[in-house]
Design a protein around this nucleic acid. Structure first.
Length: 364
DNA sequence: TCTGGGGTCCTAGGACCC
DNA sequence: TCTGGGGTCCTAGGACCC
């Protein structure tokens, strides 16, 4: 039978750094902007398990993390390195298994054929040992007959464990967990479900009351089937990237349009460069502003044709910024915290003009 | 305590079309 | 005369994930 072995590297960015700095093993290590080097508005990107004992978590403001653990060791992120190591991991798994699907920089699902739970459990332990010995990375592994349940199991396996869920035990395994353990259920959905008395996955398995069924629709049906251990539909087709964006948070909020324009112009050129490297042409451009009150406003435009290049992206983006700015000027005059440029609706650049060529009068 | 930067997917209303 | 039903595209916003 077919299983999903779901690997999640523990404290990924920290673990990547510890490969090069084994002497830091066992210490409170944080990857993120070190507040001791100057005031920062950044957040913790990754924290070692020792740092987590101080209550430090990913996405926590770096300033708060420094307060909670003044002796923590801060390391600046090196995203190029984390990307290379992710490639190593995928290549290593790809050399042993034919069906390897990355889900994020530090998570990979591997399809494994095995006769029973004990056999696939042994495979998972071998994979874990191999990743530890060959790549010096600590992995938590969840195994189940569906990817969603395998991912939930990998969370329960942290840090450094292996959790195998037999197909007949799925509902029992999930029952005591909070609905929040389900991928895709965040704080808002948790609260909406709680309003109907649904707190645990066991509650979900009893089925939703009629008004909740109406409110949650297809997602509600998915959640109930999952809770009951019934087969669920998991989309997987990777059709390439859907969007690319770039943004910048100012070190202090900005009220001068000119300053926002300069930042946006630079972001647009950088983004266009990386799209050219990926050979992606875009048709929709969006500009977003996050205001000082942390709310966001966006403006987007779908262009009549596929487009590429920094000048063109920047000119559309700056027009959208002007529209946003005009609207704001008629209202609140909030300062800007973050500016972003976003592109979507891609067309691979290598396919360019094959259609148009057909309209060019032939001379031969 | 004061919230990064990069993504994916979904919803809902209006425009537009048949 | 007071007006269907279904589909797609566009836009803005929201929830969620790592």
């Amino acid at each position: 039978m077919r299983w999903t072995v779901y690997l999640d590297i523990d404290a990924y960015y920290v673990s990547c750094e510890l490969r090069d700095r084994p002497e830091l093993e066992g210490r409170a290590v944080i990857v993120g902007p070190n507040p001791a080097l100057g005031a920062t508005r950044g957040v913790v990107l990754s924290a070692s398990y020792e740092a987590r004992t101080f209550g430090i978590r990913s996405a926590m403001p770096a300033s708060e993390a420094a307060r909670r653990c003044p002796e923590a060791i801060w390391l600046a992120p090196d995203f190029a390195k984390y990307g290379r190591i992710a490639e190593e991991l995928r290549a290593r798994l790809g050399s042993k298994f034919s069906d390897v699907v990355p889900f994020s920089i530090d998570e990979v699902a591997v399809a494994v054929e095995a006769p029973d739970a004990d056999a696939v459990g042994r495979v998972a332990l071998e994979v874990q040992a191999d990743i530890r010995d060959a790549l010096r990375l600590p992995a938590s592994i969840g195994v189940a007959s569906s990817r969603t349940v395998a991912k939930v199991a990998s969370d329960r396996a942290k840090p450094g464990g292996v959790v195998v869920v037999r197909p007949e035990s799925v509902a029992t395994f999930l029952a005591p967990l909070s609905v929040r353990a389900i991928p895709g259920v965040g704080p808002k959905t948790e609260a909406r479900l709680a309003a109907f008395g649904v707190v645990t996955i066991a509650d979900l398995a009893k089925g939703l009351p009629l008004p909740a069924r109406r409110e949650f629709g297809d997602h509600g049906r998915f959640l109930v089937r999952l809770a009951r251990g019934e087969p669920i539909i998991e989309s997987s087709d990777d059709l390439g990237p859907r969007s690319r964006s770039s943004d910048q948070t100012f070190s202090t909020d900005v009220s001068d349009l000119r300053e926002v324009q300069i930042a946006l112009d630079r972001l647009a050129h950088e983004l266009a460069e990386s799209l050219l490297r990926e050979r992606l042409r875009f048709q929709t451009v969006a500009v977003g502003l996050r205001w000082e009150d942390f709310t966001r406003t966006t403006r987007s435009r779908t262009l009549p044709v596929m487009t590429e290049g920094g000048e063109r992206l920047a000119s559309v983006a700056l027009r959208l910024l002007d529209e946003l700015w005009t609207d704001e000027s008629e209202g609140r005059h909030r300062r800007v915290r973050t500016v972003s440029v976003h592109t979507e609706r891609f067309h691979a650049a290598k396919d360019r003009q094959t259609k148009l060529d057909g309209f060019v009068p032939s001379t031969s």
